[in-house]
Structures are given as C-alpha cells and as structure tokens.
Nucleic acid binder design. Structure first.
Lengths: 250, 250
DNA sequence: AGATATTTGTTCGTATGTATT
DNA sequence: TAATACATACGAACAAATATC
C-alpha cells in the first residue's frame, strides 16, 4: 500500500474542529466587524475546552485574517474583514510551487484588464482621476536608473483602477495578478537598458492616453487602449525575463 | 482619533512569528512534500520555544494547508501541496461578505471560459475527451426533477476542462468561479420549471457541440461555442435567481 | 505620567490518544 | 498483543501588553 499521501480521511482534532465551528459561525453572519469582543474565557466555557485548545483555534482564525486578538482590558477576539493582502498571501501558499510564466500571467491579464477598463470608465470619480494623474506624474519623475521602482509605480496605476471596480471577483483577480507581477519585479529586478527606456515610454504614453479616454468617458477607446497596452507590456516583459522565467521564492 | 481599525502596526506574537518564519522556509523551497517528517521537538529546540508555542504555529500552518501533522511513530510534521479546495476555502473567507451577483460572476466567466476553451482544445487527450463524453451522458440521465444535481453535473464538465489547463492562474480562476456557482446552486436550489428544462437542453446541446469541436481540434469553433454557451447560461441563471441574487452563508 | 486592573501570551508537568512495529 | 514514539489535551502558574483611572 502506498503512503497515505492522498488520503482524505484526516480526522480533525479538537482544536481544528473548534476553529471550523467558529469559522462557520462567522461565515453565517453571527458575528460582524465592530461587534464587542469575545474573550478566550467565553470560548473555553462555551465549548468546554482548555485554554491551550481555545488558543490554537483562535490563532488559526487569526492567521486566516478572520479575527483580531488584542491583549488588555477591552481586548479579546473581534471579527474582522479579511484584507486583500491576506487573501493574496493565502493564494501564494497555493501557487508558489507552480511554474508560472510571464505568458501565463499575460494570457489572463490581456482579457481582464481591458474588461476592467470598460467597466470603470463611466464610474471614475474626479478624485480617482486625480489620483491617476498624480501617479502618471510620479512615473515621469522616478529616477532614470530606478527601473524597478518605475515598474512598481506603473503597476499602482492599475491597482487604483482595480479598487474602483464594482465587481468584487474581477477586482480581486486583477489585484492578484498585479501582486504576482510585483513579486517578479522585486525578485528579479529590471536592469536599465535602452529597452527598459522604451518600456517606460510605452507604459507612460498608454497611461496618458488612457487618462484622456477616462476623462472623455470613452469606454470603447479605453478598452482598446488597455488591450494594446497589455500586448506591449507583455512583449517588453518577455525581453527582460526571457519567458520561461519562473516565479520562485518570496 | 478613530479606532485603530486600519492600523498596520500589529505586533506579531511569538507563535505567529514562528509560523511566519516556518512558512518563509517552506516557501523558499527548503522543505518539500515527501521529505521525512520533522517533529514538534525539533521545532521546539531549533527555535527555543515551548511546546505550546510550537503547536500554535504548526496548527496555523496546518490550517492553511501547508503542512500535515500526524501522531504516532513516523509521525510529525510533513510539508504538503495546498489543495484547490483549501485555496477556495481561503478565498471564501475573503469574499463571503461581498455582494456577489450573477452578473459579476458571468462578467468574468464570459471572458475566461472561452479563453480556456481556446487553450485546451489542442491539448485534450483521448482520455479526457472520454471523461467529457461520460459527463455528457450522465447529464442526460440525471432524473428530470433533479435540477440541482443537473447543474452540478454540468459544472463538472467545465471543471474537467479547467484541470487540463496548463496555465495555473487561469485554471484556478475558473475553478474558483465554478466553486462559487456550486455554492449558489446548492444554497438556492433550482426549481424544476419549463425554463429549467430549456436551461438543461441549452447546456446539453452546447456541451455536445463543444465535444465535437474538441474532437476536431477546432479551437476557433470551441471558443465561439463557449462564448455563446456562457451568454445563454447567464440568461437562464438570471431568470431563476432574479439577478441581484446575492451569495450568503455557506 | 504612573499605577492598576484586565486580558492575552508563554511555559511546564502530566496524562491521554493514536499509529507503527 | 505489547511496546514504542509521537501528537493531543488539560491545568496551573507566571509574563507581557494595554486601557483606564
């Protein structure tokens, strides 16, 4: 018989079971962010478990971003909204062994970013457009030999758009992909070359044109521009990273 | 001053810090699935922490699907690959408070499923095509008054395709969306009506045509069919669920 | 600003449960 | 079956953090 590597009969132990029970109650809407904090003691009494067991369960939920634990008076366990960062962290647990290539990323990004542009164009507030304009300026200002920083600023432009997306799924998917690209850029760095200069100008010009189409509320044009932008971005990234460049480590 | 709701200065406690350290080492590739198991005792000694602290950290990593803990001789801590189910569970922690509508889901699904069809058409093995054919048969056989079961079987067709996708990101995104749809179908149920009969036939016919285009390795046709399929599927789902139908509870 | 009360954080000893040999 | 090796759970004591007065 093989090692039980793929067995599914895992008997959930007490602390794990407790974590599952509490998670269910959180998911069912019984507790909400802002509610008065529960306490370790309450959990121990309600579920008839020892302090250690209760703590293990709570630490599990805390690590998943579902609750917040504070010491001191008025402290205890309070339910929180899971943050995008935490969700991305959990996703990376799943993906970090995968051989993700630039092509994989852009295969998806090329369809999602244009869709995002189309959706948000009529929705962008004056304030958001200002933020995009500020971002465009700082992209221009970043020191010429700071290619990595330039890429991060450029990705921020797309993050701002994602934050305005009323479709939670699309918003998260795009944020996740941007997060991946940030990991790549931070890990590998982008050396300064003639090509990276072209990359910068291409990105800058597209962002400038996108901004105009946002101002004009021209969703069709924004979609088209974003589509072109993604194609060029992929081409430039492939030059630097030789495709087959694979994501490893954090 | 507001409540420190958005503070980021959260001091990570010992057990949490230990979990982060061990996670880093797992992500860096130091440990791999199949390696001999570590033991609680090893962790305690290496990091100079007590049993309780070590256990909290290990329970955290176990709950995230990164490790497996077994009792008994040869037991201990072994590193595992995070499962799709676990990743979906973590995603649901993030999304369960969001107001996700059918339109949100299909806005994304309408661009991703056709892309998937295009990618996998040249890659489908004889074996996979057989599995799809079997699925098509069982869709036909499911009892006429089992509309919910029908939807689950139909979604399985798309799951099989996703499993063949060499792009890990696209594969996961689609599996996640299918998982959401399963939650909806299971939670709300789909009553049997004349409309649900149409839904069934529409789905069946599209799956049958898709199968043909897969056999012919006709990626263009498969893409087109999938695109049409998604439009109809959305329309039918909207009839049942009145749009604005929102996902709540597990 | 400092003392205090409250609540979580960490440790240890012990006993029990469980899987392998 | 018994012995062994490992995790699991409990309880009590003490340490650290923090809100409030």
């Amino acid at each position: 018989m093989d090692k039980a590597l793929f067995e599914n009969t895992k008997t959930v132990k007490k602390s794990g079971h407790l974590a599952i029970q509490i998670r269910q109650r959180i998911l069912s809407g019984e507790f909400n962010p802002g509610d008065p904090a529960l306490q370790e003691k309450d959990i121990m009494e309600e579920f008839h478990v020892s302090k250690g067991t209760a703590r293990e369960a709570l630490k599990i939920l805390e690590s998943q971003g579902l609750i917040d634990i504070r010491t001191g008076p008025k402290g205890g366990v309070s339910v929180t909204q899971v943050s995008v960062d935490k969700a991305n962290e959990m996703m990376w647990n799943y993906f970090f062994r995968s051989d993700i290539t630039i092509k994989d990323i852009y295969q998806v990004r090329k369809v999602l970013e244009p869709l995002l542009a189309e959706i948000v164009t009529p929705l962008l507030s004056r304030d958001t457009i200002n933020r995009l304009a500020v971002n465009l300026d700082s992209l221009d200002c970043v020191g010429k030999y700071e290619s990595t920083a330039e890429r991060i600023v450029e990705l921020d432009f797309h993050k701002i758009l994602a934050e305005c997306c009323p479709n939670p799924i699309l918003a998260f998917f795009i944020q996740f992909i941007i997060n991946l690209l940030e990991k790549i850029v931070m890990a590998q760095g982008i050396e300064f070359t003639d090509e990276s200069e072209k990359l910068k100008m291409s990105g800058y010009n597209f962002h400038a044109d996108l901004l105009k189409s946002f101002l004009n509320k021209d969703a069709v044009e924004a979609t088209r521009l974003m589509s072109e932008h993604m194609k060029e971005a992929e081409a430039y990234m492939l030059q630097f990273l030789n495709d087959q460049q694979i994501l490893k480590k954090e």
